[in-house]
């Protein structure tokens, strides 16, 4: 995003219900990629049944946010467009924050962004946005603090890795026999490991370290802090 756009992002608050915000946002998103927006597309993308979508759209029309055109095409009014752009801006800002800064997985980041976008005030959103932009430019300049922040935020418990992820051990929490045993079995700082799979009941997990395979309970994997390797 270019810096001039910052001014354009107002992240204005709206009194519309979160549910309705989602519709307006979706219409805005669809209108950017498609020539026309159909009820069908909205239903599909929001994963909501057609009749519910239709009745919601009627309400939005009554509020003067959209116009129902011929052939069931939908267009946002100027008022509606403003809300749509605002909500979508919040979403993109938040999901980018979660992925690039907080190092969350794309899908999870989108999910959380969808939930949070309606709750934040415009002020909070603006500040987050400024932070995000600043961090990105600092990171590009290889500023040490940004590197360090990046490292810290990349670290996570082994239990949060997905099947097939590789990672490097940062440190092992806790103490006593468990830590000692892990150490003896080759778990130490800097060692590489790969999560091979989770058991059918999602616990325990199997990983590969030092040329052999080992299983660990998820509860125990939480104690091992790793830094995922980007592939």
């Amino acid at each position: 995003m270019e810096s001039s756009e910052i001014i354009n992002h107002t992240f204005e608050d709206t009194t519309l219900s979160p549910n309705m915000q989602d519709y307006v946002e979706m219409i805005e998103v669809l209108s950017r990629t498609k020539k026309v927006v159909r009820v069908k597309d909205i239903a599909k993308n929001l994963n909501i049944k057609m009749p519910s979508v239709t009745s919601a759209l009627q309400k939005l029309e009554e509020m003067g946010l959209i116009i129902y055109e011929r052939y069931g095409y939908i267009e946002l009014t100027e008022k509606g467009k403003k809300i749509g752009v605002n909500v979508y801006d919040r979403h993109t800002c938040l999901s980018e924050l979660f992925t690039t800064v907080f190092k969350m997985e794309k899908k999870r980041a989108e999910e959380v962004a969808c939930r949070v976008e309606h709750q934040l005030t415009s002020e909070a959103c603006r500040q987050l946005y400024k932070f995000l932009e600043f961090y990105k430019s600092e990171k590009e300049k290889n500023e040490i603090w940004a590197e360090r922040l990046n490292n810290i935020l990349e670290e996570r418990p082994l239990s949060e890795l997905r099947q097939g992820d590789s990672a490097k051990i940062v440190h092992i929490e806790g103490s006593g026999p468990f830590k000692k045993r892990l150490g003896e079995m080759g778990f130490r700082k800097g060692e590489l490991l790969k999560v091979l799979k989770y058991a059918p009941l999602k616990d325990p997990l199997e990983l590969r370290i030092k040329e052999y395979n080992l299983s660990l309970r998820v509860e125990e994997a939480k104690e091992i802090i790793v830094k995922p390797l980007s592939i």
């Binding site: 026999p177 199997e206 052999y212 080992l214 309970r217 125990e220």
Partner: peptide, 9 residues
């Protein structure tokens, strides 16, 4: 006891 169990080939 921790469940550090080797899965041998």
């Amino acid at each position: 006891m921790p469940f550090v169990m080797e899965l041998p080939p």
